[in-house]
Design a protein around this nucleic acid. Sequence first.
DNA 1: ATCATTTTGTAACAATTGATACATTTTGCC
DNA 2: GGCAAAATGTATCAATTGTTACAAAATGAT
Lengths: 225, 225
Amino acid sequence: MIDYSILVKSPLFNGISEEECMTLCSKIHYQVRKFEKDAIVVQGGEEVTNLFVVLSGSVRGEMIDYSGKTVKIEDIEAPRPLAAAFLFGKENKFPVTVTANKKSELLAIPVVEFLKLLQLNTRLLRNYLNNISTRAQFLSQKLHFLSFKTIKEKVAHFLLQQAGDRFHSFELKNTQQQLAELFGVTRPSLARVLGEMQSENLIKIEKKTVTLLDKEGLNSLLENG
Amino acid sequence: MIDYSILVKSPLFNGISEEECMTLCSKIHYQVRKFEKDAIVVQGGEEVTNLFVVLSGSVRGEMIDYSGKTVKIEDIEAPRPLAAAFLFGKENKFPVTVTANKKSELLAIPVVEFLKLLQLNTRLLRNYLNNISTRAQFLSQKLHFLSFKTIKEKVAHFLLQQAGDRFHSFELKNTQQQLAELFGVTRPSLARVLGEMQSENLIKIEKKTVTLLDKEGLNSLLENG
DNA sequence: ATCATTTTGTAACAATTGATACATTTTGCC
DNA sequence: GGCAAAATGTATCAATTGTTACAAAATGAT
């Protein structure tokens, strides 16, 4: 029924042997559901009562906006789990409608059964906790970024974070375009701010190398926020 | 040692009886640590190896900025847990330095022991998962909000979300000030936009009652983002 | 009912950012 | 080295939002 060699490659079951995985699954109720191309797996807004793991094929998340148009969000290929972050919590509803890209098989484990699994296997529990925690931490960090009002503040925070306790000089690994997207601003605006910060002798940029000339000054940009 | 009547009031142990709680704790290793006023509980950047629950007194989170100044973040009173969201995940380090506001007692449970607890008691597991999931969902929603560029878009999204499929009229439960903070804008700016949207006959506001006059119009504000 | 406090409406001006366009520099490839 | 493509620097103007200030309205307590 289940191809365990695929399942153990999923982030959730990572580090668990195929045998163990099989034993675990034998102890709970689950379903393997098959979907034809373009079949709807779950409707957005529906309550999340199952953990889904894509066993074969691929599905896509689509958000339906208020006017009825669909906007593609992301593809999920085997063996990734689906909406794992929405199994619990106050608003455990699917944020998106999920549709099969092609003929696909999905493992569906009811929440109560998944809870049993988590209590049976420490590695699985750790995997799941790490998964949603990492996600939360990512969101938290991204939010922290956006909490800075001006582009200057965002840049200052980014540079200080990148530099850390290391040297005052380091290599930029992103283009201005990529940084602009990270900050949620336009590329010329970012360039303008970088220029201003150079003429204020806060930083110096040569090709891809950034030098922090005045860490104190960069700090003070953040404090007065 | 532990005052279980307090512990069961914490969000983590909510719904678990004092007896059960006592039995659970007897099965694991833990410490009750006492801190004098202004003693440092944990240093920011330190790895999170324990789950802390404030049993008595209160502690405060303080962030140390790049120049060394401390900024108070929040107070945590008994019986709330500490940094519960940072127990797992890639970056499981304390984001803040935690200091005792007054003489306080904290329960410290090592991560591995806490994992045991989670596997022993389903209610505790559910509580914890709900706790961090709700947090992640809150962050996710907040992030979604900030992804809208203009205030009008944010307001339109908020109103359509609040209304849902229900009537076109509903009660606002927040003040403009609170909404402004949710959107990350200033209060006068929000008021101005609300005024504009009224004169454009998109919405009508009477005291705390909002009526959506033109859902289509509100939608179109979002699509052109 | 009245008064103090909070909330809301509104206005004028400043500051920041976006949009667009174009020149210049850098990069990668042949 | 030379060329095309990508990345960057820069300028101008428009649009949005913040800032500050004050008056009107609503709320809540005595």
